[in-house]
Design a protein around this nucleic acid. Sequence first.
RNA 1: GCGCCAGUAGCUCAGCUGGAUAGAGCAGCAGCCUUCUAAGCUGCGGGUCGGGGGUUCGAGUCCCUUCUGGCGUGCCA
Length: 591
Amino acid sequence: MDPGGSGRCRRPCVFARETRVLQDRPVVRRTGWTQGGRYSNMIKRIIHDHVTEALDALKLSHDKEFTVEVPNNPEHGDYSSNAAMVLAKENKTAPKKLAEKLLKELVKNKYFKSVTIAGPGFINFEIAPALYQKTLWDIHKLGAEFGDSEYGEGEKVLLEFVSANPTGPLNIVSARAAAYGDTLYRIMKKVGFDPAREFYINDAGNQVDILAESLELRLREIHGENIGEFPYEAYHGEYVTHLAHKLNAADGARIFMMPEKERTERLKEFALNELLEMQRQSLERFDVTFEGWVSEKTLRGEGVVEEVLSYLTEADCTYEKEDAVWFASTKFGDDKDRVLMKSDGSITYFVPDLAYHLTKIQRGFTKLIDVFGPDHHGYVPRLKAAFRALNYDEDMLEIIFLQQVNLFESGEKVKMSKRAGKIVTMDDLVNVVGKDAARYFFIARKANAHLNFDLELALQQNNDNPVYYCQYAHARICSILKKAKKDKVYPRSFKKELTQKLTRPDELALIQKITDLPELLEVIAAYREPHRLATYTEELCGLFHRFYNKFQVVSAKNKELSQARLLLIETVKDTLAMCLDLMGISAPEKM
RNA sequence: GCGCCAGUAGCUCAGCUGGAUAGAGCAGCAGCCUUCUAAGCUGCGGGUCGGGGGUUCGAGUCCCUUCUGGCGUGCCA
């Protein structure tokens, strides 16, 4: 093969060749704001709007942006704004003086129980129940659209995750990747990105050859042949023997009469189809599906490998050494140069994978997110280097590393080896703890933290899993609603005036918590941190369980209050169901 | 050696991207079911945020350094 040859243009170009300008794009766009420059948090938005109105009424300028935040210290009110401090300069007024002017306007508002000035010019707001009540009603009206946003501006994002070798059952790290990637996908979609999930099938490398050899040995074993000691390099897992039996049932001894090349192809094809189907089913049981499954083998057949090689050569960053073709990736920030074509003329994993990434760009994706296992971080610099060499914006490529999962049994770390067939599979895990608990367990931890998983704990004390805490809250609410309907307390439709009955701190705290969700979802999408949804869900449930223990909802004596609380808990239930759904976890009506 | 990630309560982990008094769940102790699900709630105990410097009005969060653990550093994928 001649990567620098002139054959490049004989076939149609797979990739666009226009030069891309490297651009400085912010890694994270501003969160918490919708496109119109308004807060996605409804209460913050109202406060922000009122401050703006006050500024206008006082004919004060407000070119610079000011914020509304929830102060950490509750003594500083429910919400706090830095408007006076930010706008002091452009109005040529001292911050405190400006704050005092604003204060006079703001105290007129029925939504604020108190407005005070603190510190260097913070304006602190204590919120009147009326604002919480109005907000609850607005959320109720939004229904399933609550939390929807245009934050992502329809950006096409490709999420690649799992992408395991199709040489065996999926392991625990794949399960973690599946839970992480799928949840991130769901949340990004909710906040206005245009994401797609993709699984890259490494069905063309060395590992597949070894798989075929392993299968052939097991097949010969079935036919009574003495195969001697099973090679160390081969796949030792029991599933290979199962596959051999299945293949034997289909082909019998016929396969041994095929020419060697044909037989190898048959073995490969059979094993890959079976194992890929097995992986697909494991993922489906985990409620994870993919918009795309891209085969390395297919990709190679499309000529993209040669094309990528020629581009790199054209960019003058390849050379030959020791009969191999190298990529001078050190020119672009890598530690060492990388082999593209081995001395035996075959291609390294890197080339088709790079080609695959370029097809993503070709298909119109502007953000390529790869979720990798911990053992791949050395691989990133060469991918980034290739992007730079080919003049693509390397910031389009974003790699997220999931740290490893350590399994513990009886306090001892379980050592796993795919080669040796010692492996706890994704299916094992789902069988033991169930889909919901497993997904929750993986989602609830941030990506780049190691994860210790005690199998016995999961097996014996699975009620300790916080997922039940959340699902239980949902089931409890369903139970109350059922009782309300049975007692004929549940109204045909809720009336807005009912919300005025909600004045207790526990009730208002629930409303406030619900209003946090839309902004949180944007933050999660922006920072790729789905674990924060798990934390949020637990907090929401905690508030509900406390409320539940304190107050009776259904009461024939006070029907209006009952109905107001029914509206509240139904909104909690819908919010909860939404959170659980975003995590791919079921929301049971009873437990 | 170099690079990446992590180190927060006995254990597993959060900590809103620099804010005021560091949180939750398990585990331990003490309470709460004739009322909508006790897989729940309430209270108590538990911490030199690995160590040391620095930046800042302010650091678990940022910078430097050091220790410990994991991973990477193949013409494997």
